[in-house]
């Protein structure tokens, strides 16, 4: 039910976006003249990279683009390199960029002279979820046990996650603020590394994305405690959400596509349509279900509003982290 609703909504949005740009007849005729560069804000092999390459393979397999899509990794400086690159590509109709949350956090944390408001939003493909995990051998069964255990550890509780200032550390900060916890945050290189260290007992808990911990969960090595989502995640029907438990803790990782400033509206319409088709493919829909991603399609001005709203939220979060 949920997917159908979002898809219908998506079509309506795309239609309205189309109307806004209706004027020139060229809107229907524009097509890329050369291969399209797909900039990835992360290095090769990570979660963001894998997803971007999945998109590319679906586009290619289903023949959604007239020209090939070439993925280019620019992961330097938590995406700073990619953001600078996109800024330099102003007005280029053959560049798109796959984003994650560093799209707003990196310009907030480091002064790289990029204002994301200038970029052209294309489409939001999905929202990735976060779950609080412990090792399946631990005695912790629910959130109350968890909070009690962390408090009992008196500051030596080890939470593993990705680099400081990135998503996992923000979720951890939210958790600490909400429950007044004292947690030692241990940064690792990637989510897979974190999951392995949790299974191996080198850390006490994690806030991995479901896709990063799924394999271990299925093998009975990890236990989900609570999800940072408003509704329960389909793959973990027995795991309560933070909202259910009375805590307003919701955090998403967005997976979207944006384009440089000043892209031709006709080109924007072309890419929007391409991703709309991609969103409707069975392969993508199955993938999102299996990996507990929310396929929440959004385009145009709504997407830009969403970006700016999220940027404001992250500004606040980062501020509270700096104080703490």
């Amino acid at each position: 039910m949920k997917t159908r609703f979002t898809r219908r909504m998506a079509m309506a949005l795309a239609a309205s976006a189309g109307l806004m740009m209706a004027g020139p007849a060229a809107a229907e005729e524009w097509a890329p003249q050369k291969p399209v560069e797909m900039v990835i804000m992360a290095g090769q092999g990570g979660g963001a990279d894998r997803l971007a390459r999945l998109f590319q393979s679906i586009i290619q397999k289903e023949g959604l683009s007239k020209m090939p899509i070439l993925p280019v990794n620019k992961g330097g400086g938590s995406g700073a390199e990619a953001l600078r690159y996109l800024k330099d590509k102003s007005g280029d109709n053959h560049v798109i960029m796959a984003t994650l949350n560093s799209y707003y956090t990196t310009p907030l944390r480091t002064d790289i002279g990029v204002n994301i408001e200038e970029f052209t939003p294309i489409a939001r493909m999905a929202l990735d979820t976060f779950v609080l995990w412990v090792n399946a051998d631990s005695d912790i069964q629910n959130l109350d046990d968890y909070v009690a255990a962390v408090k009992a550890a008196g500051g030596s509780w080890k939470m593993g996650g990705t680099g400081t200032g990135q998503e996992d550390s923000l979720v951890t900060a939210m958790l600490q603020n909400e429950f007044g916890l004292d947690i030692t945050y241990v940064p690792f290189k990637g989510g897979g590394d974190v999951a392995k260290n949790l299974v191996g007992g080198h850390i006490d808990s994690s806030v991995n994305n479901p896709s990063e911990a799924l394999g271990f969960y299925q093998a009975g090595k990890l236990r989900p405690i609570a999800a940072f989502t408003p509704d329960r995640i389909e793959v973990f029907p027995d795991t309560p959400t933070m909202t259910e438990l009375g805590h307003d803790l919701v955090y998403w990782m967005q997976r979207s596509f944006v384009a440089p400033a000043g892209m031709d509206p006709a080109a924007v319409a072309y890419y929007t349509e391409m991703f709309e088709k991609l969103n409707a493919t069975e392969e993508w829909q199955t993938y999102t279900q299996e990996k507990a991603l929310m396929a929440d399609f959004l385009t145009g001005q709504e997407l830009q509003d969403y970006f700016l709203e999220e940027r404001a939220k992250h500004d606040e979060l980062l501020g509270s982290m700096a104080e703490g």
Binding site: R50, S57, L214, A219, Y287
Partner: peptide, 12 residues
């Protein structure tokens, strides 16, 4: 990444 693309879940 390739294995994920083909719908396989690496892991135990």
């Amino acid at each position: 990444g390739g294995m994920v693309m083909w719908g396989l879940v690496p892991g135990p």
